[in-house]
Design a protein around this nucleic acid. Structure first.
Length: 884
RNA sequence: GGGCGUUUAGCUCAGUUGGUAGAGCGUCUCCCUUACAAGGAGAGGGUCGAGAGUUCGAGUCUCCCAACGCCCACCA
């Protein structure tokens, strides 16, 4: 790397080559490895483990970039930084994709059997695990692969067993029959938050249930006529006089003949439907509660596959019929026998499986649950008392709202891929033992269900650090972690569970900050998904634009409010162009560092532009540190972009060219350039690691260091403040801009040399004399002369007013007087408008009375300045008009 | 039904203690000036969704309305 010939560096930054080479350099040097025995204060982040179902998407790229920026920044800022990588076994999701693959081969998991199926799934998981980690490397991730973890590895599995047993012993895990969300396709229970509701256009059927042994009937409205065979009662509201006389009577279920009572229950809404509800406790959560209150035994009529159960309660011709086919058929039968009185269109919400979008079947079923309320107490307190802070803070409200209305968590899944529940049943007595190990494999069989995948991810911050052993080096050094970085979509699924579990089992909040960023969407604002075909693969973007370009662009799009981020391919040109700008600016500096010595710059030999850029750099460092600490990471990107491009490239490098040509200034300018480039690269490094490392390696350094990634991050330095020179440079810039403006607006060719007469007094005059060379070169001025401030304006000349001085540009034969007058009038108008507004304020007694002193003084000063400048412009216009 | 977010230049979006608006892209003009045409220089472009209020002063605070988006709850 160090043998590179600077003059042969390509003019276009080659991201691909650089990234590969640099990442390898970091890996070989073991720069990402965290030391648990370090004296430095710890900074740790555990990655939200990506599912092993697939590959990296843009959301991971954003999430990973932000974590890497925080990790790299803190590593450079004196912390022992650990970013712990890993993946999630993603129980239901992974099983689904593997089953899908098997289906392609004409197989089901049952054909393979549990053991063989798990083998297949492990294979799949391992392949994707390495693919995902490889992609994270392409992203420049500075994570410590020696600590890589998997939610289903030995350590995490031990943690799961430990937690399960302890919660069970504490009475916080129980097993029981409740209505759960059952996915007939996944063949498993799923939790409430894995169920999404969709509005569907359905029907409300009114069915007549005849009274037993007497004429008359009660009419019931239902959206699910196929469940009538599971009815155990008809319920009406106790205050509903319409049905007063029917309560206590018996009706006969149509098509079935079974007899059920008419009961009263508060749950019934008099105004909905007919005011009479069929009660089906086995297939509806509300009905289940009603049934329980009235001591009614549930009757199952739909099975786990969503088919009509082949049982006595269901007429034989419907046995094993799909629930929707059965519905059609039942409607026909009811209609034929005149039990169906009315059909109405009815919009209602239907639960869908988040994973496969199959309509959920509420099913009474025996499952395992975590009693959440006792655990939620501390999780609520931790956020309320500030032990855990959400950024942006508004998410705390969502979190607390959910926690405060927490419902028990159904944790058992009827799957194979996952942590098998550590409950064992005696083969003969059926006695159940909950323990980490099977008490006697000959006599006990393990519960066949596995745990919800989020159960293990909920332990992630501490299961990865050695838990249940809290004496490991990593646990002691790196737990609790510093911050959790994730999207808002998994606050309930994951963040909430980590907080409850962390507090319960480690007595500490697993992280003190939850940094929530927006979600990545396509250019139309739609969520990216494979089925929509609107996904953008981050690796393709990296191939096309470069990793640092991707990282910079994504970072720049992060707002403090955590808005969703719309991206399209072309947006990454922003980052690519910036990377190229950095590359070329650096190339320029490096090409001009030949012959530089090993000394730091000489403070006494600094020029105005030198001091100005040092001042800018210093201020930028201050702002950048402040912004990173406050998680305003998008702002960091903007500030650095503005500093690097607009200050460093557009102005300082241009002035440096002049100084480099001056033998007296050359050496010190080189030293300043070296320092400024070095510090600028360091500031950029956390966002754009490869490019900055690559260039830094080429700087002829006067200190020892192995890599930029372990250099100190620049901080504000009181000794590098140069306010006076900063002001003087502003005068320089303004003067040059005015001259350029004159040239352009009067259509004076750049090849044409012009002269300028500067009319200034006092300090401004002194400054002009110093900055003359810069003005000459950057504004392409041939000669500069000096004159009296109040002398008359020569004919045929353009002019500009800068600060308190005037610049006169004689343009005999070149100038269109009318144009110049117009130009000046435009400027004057602007000033006059501003002045009117300011004077309006100053004439307002209340403003003068109430506004802060500094603002009033500022306003006065500005009015003075405007008066001066507009006076000068008036004078110019007058002299031009006379001559015209 | 409850809650949250968004509405600012043609487009995409910034704008943290209230002090008369910024960026990138796009547009117009000029320029291959020995770091960079993925570039340089100059310019144009906004009554900050509507309305009301507080204030000397509101894109920024309060209220109300509208449109779009999201979350939670849930109606047999």
């Amino acid at each position: 790397m160090n043998n590179t010939n600077i003059n042969e560096l390509p003019t276009v930054y080659d991201a691909k080559e650089t990234e590969e080479e640099i990442y390898k350099f970091w890996e070989d040097g073991e720069f990402f490895k965290a030391d648990a025995h370090s004296e430095k204060p710890p900074y740790s982040i555990v990655i939200p483990p990506p599912n092993v179902t697939g590959v990296l998407h843009m959301g991971h790229a954003l999430d990973g970039t932000l974590q890497d920026i925080l990790t790299r920044y803190h590593r450079m800022s004196g912390y022992e930084a650990l970013w712990l990588p890993g993946t999630d076994h993603a129980g239901i999701a992974t099983q689904a994709v593997v089953e899908k693959k098997l289906r392609g081969e004409g197989l089901t998991r049952h054909d393979l059997g549990r053991e063989k199926f798990l083998e297949e799934t492990w294979k799949w998981a391992n392949e994707h695990k390495s693919e995902i980690l490889h992609q994270f490397k392409r992203l420049g991730a500075s994570f410590d692969l020696s600590r890589e973890r998997f939610t289903f590895d030995k350590g995490c599995s031990d943690a799961v067993k430990e937690v399960f047993v302890r919660l069970y012993e504490k009475g916080l895990i129980y097993k029981g029959a409740y209505i759960v969300n059952w996915c007939p396709r996944c063949q498993s229970a799923i939790s409430d938050i894995e169920t999404n509701y969709e509005t569907e256009q359905g029907h409300l059927w009114e069915i007549s249930y005849p009274l037993k042994g007497e004429p008359g009937a009660i009419i019931v409205a239902t959206t699910r006529p196929e469940t009538i065979f599971g009815d155990v009662a008809i319920a009406v509201n106790p205050t509903d006089h319409k049905y007063k006389e029917l309560v206590g009577k018996t009706v006969v279920i149509p098509l079935s003949g079974r007899e059920i009572p008419i009961i009263e229950d508060e749950y019934v809404d008099k105004n909905f439907g007919t005011g009479a509800v069929k009660i089906t406790p086995a297939h509806d959560p509300n009905d289940y509660e009603v049934g329980k209150r009235h001591g009614l035994e549930p009757i199952w009529v739909i099975d786990e596959e969503g088919k009509m159960k082949a049982c006595g309660a269901v007429p034989p011709e419907l046995h094993n019929l799909d629930r929707y086919e059965a519905r059609e058929k039942i409607i026909g039968m009811l209609s034929y026998q005149n039990f169906l009185l009315r059909v109405r269109d009815h919009e209602h919400n239907v639960g869908k499986c988040q994973r496969c979008n199959t309509t959920i079947e509420p099913l009474l079923s025996e499952q395992w649950f975590v009693k959440m309320e006792p655990l939620a107490k501390e999780a609520i307190a931790a956020v309320k008392d500030g032990r855990i802070k959400f950024i942006p803070q508004r998410w705390e409200k969502d979190y607390l709202g959910w926690m405060e209305n927490i419902r028990d968590w159904c944790i058992s899944r009827q799957l194979w891929w996952g942590h098998q529940i550590p409950a064992y049943y005696h083969k003969e007595t059926g006695e159940m033992v909950v323990a980490k190990e099977n008490p006697d494999p000959n006599m006990y069989v393990q519960d066949s269900d596995v745990l919800d995948t989020w159960f293990s991810s909920g332990l992630w911050p501490f299961s990865t650090m050695g838990f249940p052993n809290s004496e490991t080096d990593d646990f002691k050094k790196f737990y609790p972690t510093s911050v959790l970085v994730t999207g808002f979509d998994i606050i309930f699924f994951w963040v909430a569970r980590m907080i409850t579990m962390g507090l319960e089992f480690t007595k500490k909040a697993p992280f003190s900050t939850v940094y929530i960023h927006g979600l990545i969407r396509d250019e139309k604002g739609q969520k990216m998904s494979k089925s929509k075909g609107n996904t953008i693969n981050p690796v393709e973007i990296i191939d096309k634009y470069g990793c640092d370009a991707l990282r910079f662009t994504l970072t720049s799009l992060c707002t403090y409010g955590g808005q969703d981020i719309k991206i399209s391919d072309e947006r990454f040109e922003y980052g690519r162009n910036f990377a190229n700008k950095i590359w070329n600016a650096s190339r320029f500096v490096l090409m001009n560092l030949e012959g530089v010595d090993n000394n730091d710059f000489d403070r006494n030999a600094l020029t105005i532009p030198d001091k100005w850029i040092l001042d800018k750099l210093n201020k930028t460092a201050e702002i950048v540190n402040d912004n990173i600490k406050n998680y305003r990471i998008g702002e960091v990107a903007h500030v650095l972009y503005d500093y690097f491009w607009n200050d460093l490239c557009d102005w300082y490098l241009e002035t440096a060219k002049i100084q480099l040509n001056d033998e007296n200034q050359k050496l010190n300018t080189q030293r300043v350039l070296r320092y400024v480039l070095d510090m600028s690269l360091r500031m950029l490094h956390p966002i754009m690691p490869h490019l900055t490392e690559r260039i830094w390696q080429l700087i002829p350094r006067n200190y020892e260091a192995k890599a930029i990634m372990v250099c100190d991050y620049p901080v504000f330095n009181k000794d590098l403040e140069f306010p006076a020179e900063a002001e003087e440079m502003n005068l320089t810039i303004e003067t040059i801009r005015s001259l350029r403006n004159v040239r352009q607006s009067l259509n004076i060719s750049t090849s044409l040399k012009i002269n300028a007469e500067i009319r200034a007094e006092g300090h401004e005059l002194d400054v002009f004399k110093i900055i003359e060379p810069y003005i000459k070169r950057l504004a392409k001025v041939e000669n500069i002369t000096y004159g009296e401030l109040n002398a008359t304006v020569p004919p045929q000349s353009a002019s500009a007013v800068v600060a308190s001085s005037k610049i006169i540009i004689p343009l005999a034969g070149l100038i269109d007087i009318e144009e110049e007058i117009k130009r000046q009038e435009k400027k004057l108008n602007k000033l006059v408008t501003e002045k009117n507004s300011l004077e309006g304020r100053m004439n307002n007694a209340k403003f003068v009375e109430n506004a802060p002193k500094e603002l009033i003084e500022q306003t006065k000063a500005r009015i003075d300045e405007i008066n001066l400048q507009s006076g000068a412009i008036n004078e110019l216009i007058n002299s031009l008009s006379v001559k015209a």
